[in-house]
Design a binder for these strands. Structure first.
Lengths: 108, 108
DNA sequence: CTTAGACATTCGAATATGCAAATATTTGAA
DNA sequence: TTCAAATATTTGCATATTCGAATGTCTAAG
C-alpha cells in the first residue's frame, strides 16, 4: 500500500477548487493578478466571506499574495491550477452535452 | 456578470476530487477500468463507504460504470480527469518543496 | 425457489464547511 | 495623533459531508 498520506494532501489541495466562489476567483485570476477590492467587485458578496475563501486558497497553496501599502494582490501560484481547472470545466461541458443528447433521444 | 450558475456546476464536478479516497480511486483507474471488488481490495475500508464514493463520482460525471452479470467495472469518464488530477498533484508537490526550502532557510 | 455474491441505499451520529455580523489589525494620509 | 480604507479574524449558527452499521436489490447457480 503506497502511503495514503499523499492522497489526503492531494485532496486538501483539490478542495480549494470545490466551491463556486473559489472557481470564480480562479477564472478571474487567469487574466493576471488582481487586488482584493477588484475581485470583490467582480464576485460580489460580503468582504469577510471573500477574505475567508481567499485565505483558504492561499493556505492550500493555489494562490499567492503580494501586499503593498494600498492593497493585497492575489494571483495563481501556478498556471497548472488554471489548466487543471479548465480541464475540469471541459469535463463538465462534455457531461452536459451528453445529458442534453440523452434528453433529445428520449423525446423522439 | 457572466452567469454564476456555471461556477456552481463547475465546483460540483471539482468536489469529486475533494476526498482522499476518491483521489486514490482516480489514481487507480488511470491504469484502466477496474471492478468494485478489485478497487476495494486496493483501497481497503468498508464496502458501503466505497460504494458511496463511487456513486458520487459517477453522479458528478467523472466516472463511468459498465455492469456485467458478475460485477461493476468503473473507469474514468475522460482522460482529462486524470490529467487535471495529476496537475493538482504537481501543484501540491511544488508547494511541499517550497515549504521544505523555507524550513531549511530558517534553520541556517 | 432458495441461496450466495456483489453492490447499493438508508439512517443516525460525528465532523467539517460556509455564512453573516461583529470586531480587530494595519497603514498611509490629514 | 487620529481617521479611514483595506483587509483579517472570530464567533455562533445553519447546512453539508462522511462514516459505519444495517438492510435491500439483483443476478446467476444450484
Amino acid at each position: 500500500m503506497p502511503d495514503k498520506k499523499i492522497f489526503k494532501l492531494h485532496a486538501e489541495v483539490c478542495k480549494a477548487l470545490a466551491h463556486a466562489l473559489r472557481i470564480e476567483v480562479i477564472d478571474l485570476l487567469q487574466g493576471g493578478e488582481s487586488c482584493f477590492t477588484d475581485i470583490l467587485e467582480e464576485t460580489g458578496g460580503l468582504k469577510s466571506n471573500l477574505s475567508q475563501h481567499l485565505s483558504i486558497m492561499v493556505k492550500c497553496g493555489i494562490l499567492k499574495v503580494r501586499k503593498d501599502s494600498r492593497c493585497n494582490y492575489y494571483s495563481l501560484s501556478s498556471s497548472k491550477v488554471a489548466k487543471a481547472c479548465s480541464l475540469m470545466r471541459e469535463v463538465l461541458i462534455e457531461n452536459l452535452k451528453k445529458e442534453q443528447k440523452l434528453h433529445k433521444e428520449l423525446l423522439k
